Amino acid sequence: MTTTTTTGPALRARRTDLAAALLSAALLGAAAPAMARFQADPVIAPPLDVALATPLALTAPVPAELRQAAADDIDAAGKAASAADEAPEGQDQAASAPASGSAAEPAVAGQAGAAAAAADAPAPGPRVRNRLDPWERWNRKVFNFNEKLDEHVLRPVATAYSDLVPQPARQAVDNFFGNFSDAWSAVNLFLQGRFKNGASQTMRVAVNSVFGIAGLIDIATPAGLEKTSEDLGRTLGYWGVKTGPYIVWPLLGPSSLRDSVTLPVNAYYSPAYLFDDGEYKFAITALQVINTRANLLRVTDMLDGIALDKYTFVRDAYLQRRNIKSHKEQQEDDDDDYEVITPDEKPVNPQGDR
């Protein structure tokens, strides 16, 4: 038996080749489970192949069985990637379902948190009523009724009246009713204690009644006698009676508690007061209503186009127009217009002490 003894450099070279072979086998053995785990992911598999191929190329020769096993693993990963690319959309959606479900869990949790916060929030309080309009629900129903009546009766009649009757004739009718209104305003100015304004209003009525042919022609306005409109409701307000809640009456329209009390008196002292016959009273009243509605055609048409809530607009405009300062408030305002100089105050000499 012949024994070959290897010493020196040859022995060290064989030990190095053996160590490299063992190291390569260990690397492939450790990489095999990783390759199987990443076969379903085509994005991660190619970089892993490159990472495994690089150390193998730099090391010593590897046995053929291990190289064939690595090649088979790489081919299997490529086939898995191709199958994933050719899979139908339904399978892709099914594969992405767990991810979407996990993403939906935080959204559901967020909705639950929002619902809990809403439950903890205090409940909204009752709707606050308008102090000047406590009967708004009822007033709106009556207002809608008046609107329907105006739409189907008053507006068509007033439009026909405006189209058929010439403008000078309509102006004469308006002046006639305005002259009666001026006479009632003069009475209320005297009741308010505003005698100067009452005398001026009385002069206006006299001029229009005598020289204006019973008020058909307005001569007082060009002569400088201005019109001041007052009624019994404003007279009560002048003496401190509050306006009270807002009320909408059928046919009569907007009013207030204070003005509603004075409606019979204001209606009694109207142009129909001159006639005893019921037919004439009705005809004069109907002519006054139609003429007044004809004068408001343009205003109501504009109001329909610009008002978001017509009821609120009419209510606020009425209450603002019917608001009048009481006698006491006017005296306080007049006192504020004057500066009171006490004896302790020394007047200022604009020229200085010289």
Rank of each mutant, 00 (worst) to 15 (best):
E230K: 00
P156C: 07
P55T: 06
T312F: 04
D41F: 05
R258K: 04
S256A: 11
A94Q: 12
K227F: 03
Q93T: 04
A45E: 04
P126H: 08
Q320I: 11
F176K: 01
K148N: 06
T285K: 15
W138N: 09
A10K: 04
L252P: 01
L296M: 15
F195K: 11
K141V: 12
F195E: 10
L287A: 08
L319C: 01
W184R: 10
I217F: 14
E151L: 09
L164T: 08
L297S: 05
A115R: 06
P124G: 09
Q320W: 09
A51S: 13
L48F: 00
L132H: 07
G101I: 13
R194T: 04
I284N: 02
T4L: 13
A64L: 08
E147T: 14
V43E: 08
G233H: 03
G78Y: 10
D334T: 02
A103Y: 02
R127Y: 14
A45P: 02
D85R: 12
Q171G: 07
T312L: 04
M203H: 07
F190S: 04
A51V: 13
A112Y: 09
L22N: 05
D304I: 01
G233F: 01
S200P: 13
I290P: 05
A172H: 02
P347S: 07
R293G: 03
S100E: 11
P106L: 01
T16A: 12
L296S: 08
M302A: 14
A10C: 06
V165G: 00
N291R: 01
Y268H: 10
N179E: 01
S162I: 03
Q111W: 13
R127T: 15
V248R: 01
K79T: 10
A114F: 05
P33R: 04
K196V: 14
P350E: 08
L274F: 07
I290R: 02
R155C: 03
L11F: 12
G8S: 07
G352M: 11
P347M: 02
A123E: 10
P122R: 07
R258Q: 03
D335F: 00
P9T: 14
I306F: 09
L216K: 03
K328F: 15
L297N: 03
K328C: 11
W135M: 10
A57P: 00
L263H: 08
T59S: 15
D174R: 08
V289L: 11
S260G: 14
T7P: 03
L257A: 15
S260T: 13
S260D: 09
S270N: 10
D231H: 02
V142Y: 05
A25M: 07
F143M: 02
Q351L: 14
D49L: 06
A199Q: 03
D301L: 02
V207M: 05
L48T: 00
P222M: 07
A103W: 02
V187M: 03
P134F: 00
N144H: 10
G29F: 09
D174H: 11
P47R: 05
F176P: 00
V314S: 02
V314P: 00
G110K: 11
N188L: 06
A84R: 13
T59G: 15
F195S: 14
